[in-house]
Design a protein around this nucleic acid. Structure first.
Lengths: 256, 256
DNA sequence: CGCTGATGAAGATCACCAAGCTGACTACCT
DNA sequence: AGGTAGTCAGCTTGGTGATCTTCATCAGCG
C-alpha cells in the first residue's frame, strides 16, 4: 500500500519532469504505524528491511529511517542494530502518547483500552477536580465555564459538543495545576471522542450530563472540593454508561 | 561540547565480544536534550540551524535530523518547516515518557514535578492497589512479594533497595491489569529514585515502610480491596515525608 | 500597499562507506 | 566419517556528505 499523497502531483500541467515532492514524512510514519496497528506487521516479527520499506511506501531510505526513529521513540518498534527492526508487543507502546492514540484510531476497540482509560479516569479526574477546586484561578474557572456554554449551545452538533466536552475536561485538568494530570488529557480526549461519538443517540441523557457539568463549575466557584469530586464521579458514571453503548456497537460479536 | 563516548572504546584486547559500539545517535539525542534541559536553549528560542548543530556535536546532519525528530516526537521541540526548530515550553513536553524523564534527570527538582507526581500517585496507586487486590493472579502476587523480599534483604544497599522498591510498585501496577496505570510506572520510578536517594539517612523509618509494604502483599492475598487501598495511602504518606526531605536537600534556597 | 524575487533553512534523495550480526562453508579434530 | 569450531562473505542497519527541491520570510520595487 503506497502512502497517500505522493502522487498528488495531479497537477494537470505536469507534463515535464516537475515531480512534486510533498510533505511525505508524516504520512509515511502514519502509514507504517497504521500497518502495525492493523497487524500487517505483527508483534515479534521483523519489519521488512529499510530498503524494502522504501519501495513499499515509495520514499527514500532517509525518510523511512526517520519514521522508524519516531516509531521507536514511542515504543512501537525496536531497532536491533544490523539485524532488523522488530515490532514490539502492544503493552510496550506509549499508549499515553497523543500521536500513538491517533495512529491507533478506531482500532482502540481492539485494544481493551477504553475500559482501562475509564478506570484511570475514575482515579484521576475526581482528584483533579478536588485540586482544581482548591487552586483554580478565576480565569481558569471561567475557561471551564466557557467550555460548558459551548456544550450547552452545541445542541444538535455532535462534533461541536464533543470538542467542547474535551475542552471542558482539559481545562479542568489545567485548573488542577498538576502537570501529570494535564498530560493525561490526551487519553481523556480519546475516551470522550469514541464514547460520545458512538452514543450520539442518547440525546435525552445529554441534558443530564450537561447538568452535572454545570454543578462542577459551581463547585469550583464555591471552592467545594467534596462537591467537585462528587460531580466528577457522577460524570464518570454517565461516561461508563456511554462507553458500554459504544463498545456494544463496535464489538457486536465478542471473539474469545 | 562534543558528545561523549564515540571513540572511547579503549578496548585494546578486542579478543572477545567486548567490542564497544560507537552508537552516536543516542548520545547526541541525549546531549541535545540535556542542553535544552539546562536552558542552554530555552523555551521559545530557535535552536541553531541543523548545520550548526552538526558542528557543535560533531556529527552529520542525518544524525542531527533523526535526533530532532525524536525530540519533536516527545514534545521538546517543534520543527517549523523551512524556518527552524523551536524549543517548546516545558508544559508541552511528554513528561510521562520514560526517556524524557531520564533526560531531565536531577533537574527534575527545578520542574516542580515531584510534587505533581506525588499528587498523581495519591490518585493512582490506591486505585491500582484495589484493582490488583481484585484481579492479581497468584503469580503476580508472588512477584510483588519477591520484590518485597528484595527490599527486606537489601539492608545496607540503597541502590538495591530502591530498585526493589521500584519493582514492587511496578509489579503492583502490572497486577492491576490496567494498561494506563502500568504506563505510569515510569513516573513512579522517577519519584522513588529521587525521593529515596535523598532521604537515605532515614534508615529507622525504612522498617516502617517495609512493614506497610508487607501488609499490602497480605491484603492482595486476602483480596481485601479496602486494606490494599489503605496500605497504599499509608505508603504515600511516608513517601510524602521522604519527598519533603529530598526537596529540602536539593533546594536549600528557595528562589522565587 | 501589494507584489516579486532573492535568500536561506528545512525537506528529501542519492550514493557510499563502516560495522557487525547471520549463516553457510570449510577445515580440523575426534 | 561425522561433528564442531573457525572463517568469511553478504546482508542490514548506522553514519556521512553532496545535491536538489521547496517554501517562509523579507527587502526592495512598482
Amino acid at each position: 500500500m503506497p502512502v497517500e499523497g505522493q502522487q498528488e502531483q495531479s497537477a494537470e500541467e505536469a507534463g515535464d519532469k516537475a515531480v512534486r515532492r510533498p510533505r511525505v514524512q508524516k504520512n509515511v510514519t502514519r502509514a507504517i504505524a497504521a500497518d502495525i496497528c492493523a497487524n500487517i506487521f505483527s508483534a515479534g516479527d521483523f519489519l521488512p528491511t529499510e530498503n524494502e520499506l522504501c519501495e513499499r511506501y515509495g520514499v527514500s531510505r532517509t525518510v523511512i529511517r526517520e519514521s522508524l526513529k519516531i516509531l521507536e521513540s514511542k515504543g512501537l518498534v525496536r531497532g536491533r542494530s544490523r539485524v532488523g527492526t522488530v515490532v514490539c508487543r502492544k503493552d510496550e507502546w506509549n499508549i499515553l502518547d497523543q500521536q500513538v492514540l491517533e495512529w491507533i484510531g478506531p482500532r482502540i476497540f481492539e485494544f481493551d483500552l477504553l475500559n482501562c482509560i475509564l478506570e484511570a479516569r475514575r482515579a484521576i479526574e475526581p482528584a483533579a477536580a478536588e485540586l482544581a477546586a482548591e487552586r483554580a484561578t478565576v480565569q481558569e474557572i471561567a475557561d471551564v465555564e466557557r467550555a460548558w456554554h459551548e456544550m450547552r449551545d452545541a445542541d444538535g452538533d455532535i462534533e461541536r459538543f464533543t470538542k467542547a466536552d474535551v475542552a471542558f475536561h482539559t481545562n479542568l485538568l489545567k485548573a488542577s495545576h498538576n502537570q501529570v494530570f494535564l498530560q493525561l488529557a490526551s487519553i481523556i480526549q480519546v475516551a470522550l471522542e469514541f464514547s460520545l461519538h458512538a452514543s450520539n443517540e442518547a440525546v435525552d441523557k445529554r441534558d443530564e450530563a450537561l447538568d452535572v457539568h454545570r454543578q462542577l463549575v459551581e463547585a469550583l466557584r464555591m471552592r467545594d472540593t467534596a462537591a467537585a469530586r462528587n460531580c466528577s464521579l457522577q460524570m464518570l458514571s454517565l461516561a461508563a454508561r456511554d462507553l458500554a453503548v459504544a463498545v456494544k456497537k463496535h464489538v457486536p460479536q465478542f471473539s474469545s
